[in-house]
Design a protein around this nucleic acid. Sequence first.
DNA 1: TTTGATGCGTAACAAAAGTTACATTACTAC
DNA 2: GTAGTAATGTAACTTTTGTTACGCATCAAA
Lengths: 210, 210
Amino acid sequence: MYQELQQHYGYLFEDELLQEINNVGTYRDIPEGLKLIEIGDYIKSMPLLVSGAIKILREDDEGDELILYFIEQGDTCAMTLSCCLGNSKSEIRAVAETDTKLIMIPVSKMEEWLGKYKSWQQFVLQSYHNRMTELLEAIDTIAFLKMDERLFKYLKDKAMVNHNDLIHVTHQEIARDLHTSRVVISRLLKTLEIDGKIELHRNNIKVIDL
Amino acid sequence: MYQELQQHYGYLFEDELLQEINNVGTYRDIPEGLKLIEIGDYIKSMPLLVSGAIKILREDDEGDELILYFIEQGDTCAMTLSCCLGNSKSEIRAVAETDTKLIMIPVSKMEEWLGKYKSWQQFVLQSYHNRMTELLEAIDTIAFLKMDERLFKYLKDKAMVNHNDLIHVTHQEIARDLHTSRVVISRLLKTLEIDGKIELHRNNIKVIDL
DNA sequence: TTTGATGCGTAACAAAAGTTACATTACTAC
DNA sequence: GTAGTAATGTAACTTTTGTTACGCATCAAA
């Protein structure tokens, strides 16, 4: 684990902190599709992403979903931070978008380190800042873009975090993430294909105009 | 100033910190409508709200606005925090919703206090948490509610922060805040009036069903 | 009191998004 | 193979939201 820590977080944290993380952190290998956090969960530890990507979702009373954003390596989930430090329930759902490696840090330690390591404090504040920015971007997307633009952005983002322009997904799954209906997505996808921006296949979409 | 500090923040901060705030903070009286922060501004100090309310807005490339939320006494602007600590530009606009009293804290101090006062650290983290929650609520509103529901929620929120069920606002102003057109708002307001939820007057709306 | 500006009401229409229904095509299990 | 299921395509329609256009009311300045 120390190798990967060094590699992905070495530029952020001093050796002593890396050592501490190495001592108390739990290394976890997460398969694609696994639900990491459910809405209402109490969070007992905080993940540091080593590789892979995680999809963050919001849900309303009726169970309708909406994707907020993806987080990638070097990130942590500021929602988790928020919940840990506030000792409150999770407001979001987190699902592994790809196979993912991460290191779990117990809450107690992250609080202790806040006072102890300046670099940790910086990291936590920076994470809050990043997540805030991404939430604002999510708001921009929902509020200012039309569905066809949102759809194309979604496909590009998904291609990005998967490091692959061929996306394995069904129309129905997209519809759930974007909080609309399958028919609407099929219709808009067809238009995107006609415009030469994507290629449609069963269970797969190839993003051309990246 | 110390009186008001004591009154609104006494339960949060220890005496020593209150004293420091009193020494370095600048008291400001803001009239309704004044723009406190513009998108792209670099933030040099951070506001502690003593009384009144501030409207936080987002804007897209074409200059279209969208209200995110109101902040009230006891709050601070976590966006400001975020920008100060990251030394980055403001992503939002802040406008005084009512006459407002606040205390400005210089950036240098807020960083210093993070290491020095546990209560300050808690306050900063709690503020991040609160703002995150409000951003999520804003997303819920935009993504899951229809325009008539958003409108009624907007009116209720506005009545709330103004401590007055008679709202001084034009249809055009509402349209700007909700990122839609005046005609749409007029239409939906009329429906709300017919449903007995509000009363319409020139430049004023009375919220009945609070 | 006229003029101009602002605020509001409303009709008519257009565009975007959501819904229902059904057909076709692939894949899977038997 | 065949049956069943999941995925997709598409038409027809409704609802919601956005746009354009215009009339009327109110208010303030000249």
